[in-house]
């Protein structure tokens, strides 16, 4: 198993903030919009340097999406930001009509996705946003795994023309990816090559997958770990090539089992290469208040859960 270590933990949303700060310097067309959550989205540096390219929209997300579309038509590259819940479900139709169907070059960049939002509880813990955004035609959907990857994705999106949904989170998590990585939208990252099982993970579950890989190694199971940061378009080739070798797969994501990365992968496999799959995700339930670690354990979204599913799927080969 390839060794991954970390020296610090940081929140992925700070990676977004750092990416925006760089874009503020390099991309004069990039703008930021926010709905009364500037500090949560880590936009302070961008706003300080580029006050004219920031639009405070107040607690009015539907309007914010429309304003972003209008700015995009004028040639700006607006990043519309809020919590994931209020940047997806709450404004789905606004995104659908004014952004995606209209081909407006709007980036929807959202924080506090998933259970790891913690104490605020289920009203804020969106676990359905990947499903919503994945089903939207022409939408690019990205869910990075750590600070560095989030920063790289934020920057890469500025040169990508078309609507995109960039989803990140609240808690501090290990920083383990290369700070100078090249982020290619739609291209999977091979975290570890192995032969017994393919683990496909996204977002906060990538670090858990690595932990799982180490546990499995001690038990003589050689896991291939692939990070799918771009849920859509899906890197089909990387997945198909991997299961050709391993013959089974486990998906892991901080999302409902319905409609997320797991579903995307299963759809691919059932069409192109039927393969036994087990899935780690939230199974048809809402979240609740608690610390991120407590919630990830209670809802079965950690390394231990991945290890268990790996054993189950290998038995089905």
């Amino acid at each position: 198993m390839k060794k991954y270590t970390y020296t610090e933990k940081k929140d992925t949303r700070s990676g977004f903030g750092a990416g925006m700060a760089e874009l503020g310097k390099s991309h004069p067309n990039v703008m930021a919009l926010c709905a009364d959550l500037v500090a949560s989205l880590k936009l302070d540096a961008f706003i300080k340097e580029n006050p004219d390219r920031f639009v405070q929209c107040g607690i009015a997300e539907a309007n914010m999406i429309g304003v972003a579309a209008g700015l995009a038509i004028a040639g700006y590259v607006p990043y519309a930001t809020t919590f994931a819940n209020f940047g997806s479900g709450r404004v789905y139709d606004q995104i659908r009509q004014s952004v995606a169907y209209s081909g407006a070059n709007v980036k929807i960049a959202v924080s506090h996705a998933g259970l790891t939002l913690g104490e605020d509880g289920a009203t804020h813990q969106i676990l359905e946003d990947l499903a919503m955004m994945r089903s939207m035609p022409e939408m690019t959907v990205i869910n990075p795994c750590d600070y560095n990857q989030t920063k790289a994705a934020t920057i890469a999106l500025a040169d990508h023309v078309g609507p995109a949904y960039l989803r990140f989170g609240r808690p501090v998590v290990p920083v383990f990816t290369d700070p100078n990585q090249e982020f290619v939208i739609g291209k999977a990252w091979m975290v570890n090559e192995g032969k017994d099982v393919t683990i496909v993970a996204t977002g906060h579950l990538v670090w858990e997958a690595i932990q799982a890989g180490e546990i499995l190694e001690q038990e003589g199971i050689d896991a291939e770990i692939i990070n799918i940061h771009t849920i859509k378009p899906l890197d089909e080739e990387a997945i198909l090539k991997s299961v050709e070798k391993t013959g089974c797969m486990v998906n892991a994501e901080e999302h409902q089992l319905n409609g997320g990365l797991g579903d995307a992968v299963c759809q691919l496999l059932s069409r192109k290469r039927p393969t036994p799959v087990e899935m780690v995700g939230v199974d048809n339930s809402f979240g609740e208040s608690g610390t991120p670690a407590q919630l990830m354990e209670k809802y079965g979204l950690n390394a231990a859960a991945i290890v268990e599913k790996v054993k189950q799927v290998i038995a089905r080969k």
């Binding site: 819940n85 209020f86 709450r90 104490e119 605020d120 509880g121 289920a122 009203t123 804020h124 809402f286 609740e288 208040s289 608690g290 610390t291 407590q294 919630l295 209670k298």
Partner: peptide
């Protein structure tokens, strides 16, 4: 964790007095 007193009011855990979830 496991409380009826969720971060934002919820009916899901059946706390008496709450009739609708709010927070969004």
């Amino acid at each position: 964790i496991n409380s009826r007193l969720q971060g934002h009011p919820a009916t899901h855990e059946h706390l008496p007095g709450i009739r609708i979830a709010s927070g969004s």
